[in-house]
Design a protein around this nucleic acid. Structure first.
Lengths: 342, 342
DNA sequence: GTGAAAGCGCTAACAT
DNA sequence: ATGTTAGCGCTTTCAC
């Protein structure tokens, strides 16, 4: 179990110190951008460090109580345009900062999440972004004390008062449903997302609210449980289509689900949108690549990631800052998968 | 510049030692699975560590010369199903091991790659997987001595004798082209990938070889430079379609490019595959979601990731192991975007 | 078998 | 403005 590899010899701060004729800590100060260093000394140190190809040892820095300039990112998985878009936003925003990103996937690793959080918070990173944590409570509990800076994305928590970023899920779903109603659709199927997720519940509520406001009776048989995955869209649509009175439109809780719906409908030979309309949610990049191009509710995915980073950076700079919740607006994007009721 | 956050107090190995009435180093030995520890002691230590919620500090472990149980992963970006599929394979395989993954995106950060490599190799990780490094040489050079374990995915390097994983790009392209020829196509457009990538050149060679073997004259006007991105597929197809004698089939160097081709063709009103056939490469998940479903050359993406991990783990266990190159087979997947010449 | 002690490379008081 | 020194939490000789 012990393959004690020799430590690869490194150029340390000490080497740089020796080489540039100053002390140990002066080099540290220069490297950390401290003020009280003479200009000429700073120059000299920087130059020799550069010349010697010095690279800071993050472990040591972290251990000694310094910052790692790394922010941890916990995501369920990478198999989803929704996630990767947000990650991309995080990535972009981080590029403008001095921070690097370290990404952990929790997918398939049940129960490992809290270990990850602990490890990250133990010093591996200066801050943490939790993407769609399926049970935020558990994770947050794992945080050693609540003073470790973190931001929740697309999931609220009601135990700790966390800083969060999300989108107007309710409003988005309401808008999409109202839009379909305006097109003349009365029987609108709904395929729900993973019910443990806040967004799924909010979208469901938005759907129902729109029906109610337009005096359309809520029909339980038109609502299918799902999990935000393509498969659930496929099977859900199959079920809806086999109803005695099938819907003339289907609102899928996210685009991935909508793709499954599209597929199921294609198989039956029905035409989209002539025979049946389909609307998704998220506007992931593929939405406009699908055939027909998907009408959907756009979440500003990239922006969500960027805002998450900004909020975290704020916290990092000023730990006393109050937690807050930022909710970004969604927008209905009408493409080719929806049309007036035929 | 200095927001000296207090170090968050941790449960250390020392706490566990005190609590279980043994020494400091005994705990370390137990935690590292050393042999010479009495069974009862081991039990006791393990139990108290568990009870106290002890989580190892990776920084400290690494600094002291231990292993981090982290493998670093360098990817250009996450905006591509091709990458995320491989990452997913890596992730899956890692789940069966004691290692965690730390992912770095180099996208947009020109010149930062070698810094990353250095940082990672400095102790942040025990090994490194480089995904499609655009100029491997530069990175590898950065590795402090050549004894840091790493694996190259989908890119060969001819300077250092690196362990690599890739797929049969040449053969795959040959097969796809030969298939189109067999369908009766004579004028086959080709949209190339990013020319600095090995895979792009190999696929191009495969395309030409197939033409030659079937005695079809190579027509330069049918070959468009691209970069593996959707846009280049779109603009490339537009150009091909506006030719005096447009091709009856287009072979795109990857699926992303093929999507752009599909889009461009749809816009002109031409039917796929009746009027024109399209073939891609990679078989990313969307390939079967596109309309029409894309005929493509499947790369075993997930498997590539898995193999990369296995090779790295081998190296980790036995640093003396020789470098080797594993090339996995591609497979032509015929779907709905190709048909005999009309 | 187990404990004591010396670092790993760095930051952050504390001096000067 | 710069040097000195004490750790951070851990692994790893070296003793016992």
């Amino acid at each position: 179990m012990q393959t004690s590899r020799k430590k690869i010899s490194q150029i340390t701060i000490l080497d740089v110190a020796r080489e540039s004729g100053v002390s140990y800590s002066t080099v540290s100060r220069v490297l950390n951008g401290f003020d009280f260093v003479k200009g000429s000394t700073r120059e000299k140190v920087l130059k020799t460090a550069e010349r010697m190809g010095y690279v800071a040892n993050i472990q040591a820095r972290s251990l000694a109580g310094g910052k790692t300039q790394i922010i941890g990112l916990l995501v369920p998985g990478l198999d989803n345009g929704y996630i990767t878009e947000i990650v991309s936003g995080i990535d972009q925003e981080l590029a403008h900062s001095d921070y690097d990103m370290m990404l952990y996937t929790t997918h398939r690793y049940q129960g490992k999440e809290s270990l990850y959080v602990k490890t990250i918070a133990n010093g591996l990173a200066d801050g943490l972004i939790l993407l769609v944590p399926h049970n935020a409570q558990n994770y947050l509990q794992a945080l050693p004390r609540q003073d470790f800076p973190y931001v929740l994305v697309d999931q609220i928590d009601n135990m700790y008062n966390s800083t969060t970023v999300d989108a107007t899920n309710w409003q988005g779903a309401y808008d999409a449903t109202a839009y379909l109603i305006k097109l003349g659709h009365q029987r609108i199927g709904f395929i729900m997302g993973a019910p443990q997720l806040n967004s799924a519940r909010e979208r469901f509520d938005g759907y129902r609210a729109a029906l109610q406001h337009h005096r359309i009776a809520y029909d339980e048989s038109l609502v299918i449980e799902g999990d935000y995955m393509t498969k659930s869209g496929y099977s859900g649509a199959k079920r809806l289509l086999s109803l005695e009175q099938p819907p003339t439109a289907i609102f899928a809780s996210n685009d991935l689900t909508a793709f499954g719906v599209l597929d199921a409908i294609h198989e039956t030979g029905l035409r989209i949108p002539e025979d049946i309309s389909v609307v998704g949610f998220d506007d992931i990049p593929l939405a406009s690549l699908a055939y027909p191009k998907l009408t959907t509710v756009r979440q500003p995915l990239v922006q969500i990631g960027q805002v998450a980073v900004r909020l975290l950076l704020e916290k990092l700079e000023n730990p006393e800052r109050e937690a807050r919740r930022v909710t970004l607006a969604t927008e209905l994007i009408v493409r080719d998968s929806s049309a007036p009721r035929g």
